[in-house]
Every structure is written in C-alpha cells, then in structure tokens.
Design a binder for these strands. Sequence first.
RNA 1: GCGGGUGUAGCUCAGUUGGUUAGAGCGCCAGAUUGUGGAUCUGGAUGUCGCCGGUUCAAGCCCGGUCACUCGCCCCA
Length: 414
Amino acid sequence: MAGLQPVRGTHDLLGEDMRRHRKVAETARDIAARYCFEEIATPIFEFSEVFKRTLGDTSDIVTKEMYSFTDRGGDDVTLRPEGTAGVCRALISGGLAQRLPLKFFYYGPMFRYERPQKGRLRQFHQIGVENLGVAEPPADIDTIALGAAILDGLGVLAKTRLEINTLGDAESRSAYRAALVGYFQGHVGALSPDSRLRLERNPLRILDSKDEGDRKLVADAPLFTDFLNSESKEFFSQVTKGLERLGITFTINPRLVRGLDYYCHTAFEFTTEALGAQGAVLAGGRYDGLVATMGGPTVPAIGWAGGVERLAMLLAEAPPQPRPVAVVPIGPEAEAEAPLLAARLRKAGFAVELGYRGNVGKRMKAANKANARVALLLGEDEMKRGAATVRDLDTGEQSEVPLSDLNDRLARFR
RNA sequence: GCGGGUGUAGCUCAGUUGGUUAGAGCGCCAGAUUGUGGAUCUGGAUGUCGCCGGUUCAAGCCCGGUCACUCGCCCCA
C-alpha cells in the first residue's frame, strides 16, 4: 500500500463526473419505467457458484477476473462481475418463475479484476435490463428499442451505431461451429497464436479477431447464414423487420458473436468510435439457455447491459448544477434567524445555500461561488420590517420583499 | 497476463549539456471593502519533483526497481 491511494481501477465520483453519471442512471431508469421494466436491485455479491455455473469453470473470466473471497463463515463469494446472473438467481430462488413474463431494469456497481483503461475500471457501473419469459421476436425488438430510446434520451444515439447479428438456435449454431472449426483447422498454420487457442476454447470468437492475418482467413470462412435453419432465419427476419418499422437503423455484422453456449438468436451492440478501443457502450442478446444452465426451469430471455462510465463520457456536456438561493444574514440577530428562513424555503422546495460565516462581502463571494441565482440579504433593517432584500445575482437588481411574499417572488428560481 | 507512453503546487504545464534557494498561469487565502458577489489591484501559502535504491563532489534531469495513470493486446459474463 503506497500512501493513501484509491485501489487501482477505482475512483471517486464527484462534481461534474457525478452529475454525468447520475444523469445516465436516472435517464435510463425513467425510460425503462416507461417501457414497464420494473427496477430490481440484487446483492452486490453472490455465492461464487452463481457466476461459475454461468461461465464454466475453465474460462479466464472465472480464474482471473473475478473478485472472489472466502468470508468468515467459510463461504466462497464473489463481487458481481455483471448483472444478469444475479437477476436469474433471483428469478430461481425467489420463485419468480411463477409470475413470468417479467421485465427488469437494474443499475449498480460491478467488479472485474482487469487492467484498467479509459472507460474500463475495476469497479464500474452498469445499467441493464432483462426481459424474461418471452421466446418471440417482439421481446427482442422492444428490448433493443428500449436501449435505443435510452441512448436517444441521453442525446448520444447519433454517436453510436447499432450492430446486430443472429447466433441461430442450438442446432444451427452447432452445425456452424463444426464447419468453422473444420475450416480453421485446415488453416491452423496461418492463425494467430491467440486464435489457435480460441479454436479450442471459443471458435466463434475468431470471427471478431483484430489480427490482420486472422481477418483474411475470416473473410473466406463459412458464413453463418448458410447454416441457419429456416426457423432461425425467420426469427432474425422478424427482429430486423420490427426494428426497421420502428425506424431504428442498424447494420448486420456477421462477425458479431458471443462465446457462451446459452446465447442464441439475437446478438447486438451499440458501439461508438469516440472512446478508443472500448467501443461498446450498450450490448446484449438473447440467452434462452441461461436460467436452465443455472439449475432453474427453461426461461427464454433477452437483455442488455450498458456501461455507465462510458455513456457518461459520451454526454456532450455535464448537466448543470442547480442554482441555489443564498441566504446572507447580517448581524447576530439575523444570524440566528437565517437558518429558520432557510428551512422554510427548503421545505417549500428551494435549494438554499446558507452561509455559515464571514461578513457580508465574504458571504456574497461564497454565494457567487455556489453559483447562486439570488441572494437574500437579511439585516437589522429588513428584520424590523419583516422583510428581506432579494438581490438578483445575474442582473444585480435588488428590492426589499416582505417575508410573506418570498415564496411567490422566488417561484421562478425554484 | 503482455507491450508502448507518462508521472514536477489543488489543476494545466515549464524547468537548458546534471550545478547554489524548483518556476509560470489558473485556482486558493488575506487585504484594498465591518450592508453587497463577479472585475481590478496588492500581498501570501503552496511541493517527500510518484516511491525506493544506485551512479556522482553534485540528481527534478542519468540508471535500476516499484507504484499509479494512460494507449493498445488478451478478455469482455
């Protein structure tokens, strides 16, 4: 531990950053509510098993990237690296499968032990939704539309591109996988070392390799489209048509894939060029096999998650701080009265900055620094008349106002 | 986990071939101004030069290590 530093990959959120962050979370929450996705908050940590089952024990993720520890009772627990597993666990352990279909929205911190980069922290935040219990394309369309609506609500939709693909159903996918493995095994010498490993663990991932040589091979690789059965084709066609009808523009990216087996059909990502290598800002897909993998019933589902820090960086400008009313007492009697006046105004809904010390000049400076819209000067003269001097700090105009009229006179600054 | 770049005041940065007491702007504090902010003027405080070690008569500067940030790779549930 070197002095007092924040843990690597964590940081404090305050000021402008905090306002950006909160705007992302609140906009998402509001719009999700309009789509009737109910907010859910699951615990920040779960039994490690919850994440291990969904990811498979052998993956890098489980062995290298999770914050896992044994608690004092001897239980193996993990800080959640993502939100879906917790929601699915809640669905199973809470008996929510009886109430399907269900639509959930969540927001909160996630933890991954990764090398930090811009837009990638060890403690970061996600917004996300899970649309559970519906196997038909309208759920995919509505869920993607919600993502687009949130990006639009944040004013960042134009900075992103929606890419979409289908992974087909299990039958199509295993046929394609076999063909792909066959093809790459024939060119194994030309594959990058990374992709040779992928060939064994996660062959679909070779499709989105960034290696030049790999890309050349990928260009001639078998196409997923040729292995999709008619049901899968029809499903994808309905999803894309539905998006078109809503005026949501997208490009089909046949190299957009997911590694794990419980993913199927729709996969999509909203990406941006504005954030360097960390281009995905909101991504998801259909995961009909996940709940069953975790030991629950078969529950078809689709969802997505979005990175709050990345979205916050995309916001054109930080939301402004609310401009308060500053109460400036002059003299000991006014000093005693000022907190009462502030309390009345605060109860009436005003943001009130109450100066704690200093002469009038100091407090006016403080009011200015707090970006106050008006200052209420309360001195002996005003108190005798049951009034306060209202000074507009933008125009410099001021006039004395009876305390009883204050709420009305300040109404436009609320 | 792998590779590159960067660490000097709260912030943005300057600091010559290694040479005496480490600087600027912004911000901060005080005063000009004990019933009026912003502007101006005057004055003031900034600091383990990221940290540890080495080389040297002498290190902010050179070398090694380390920590953090950053860009990319891996990964991306």
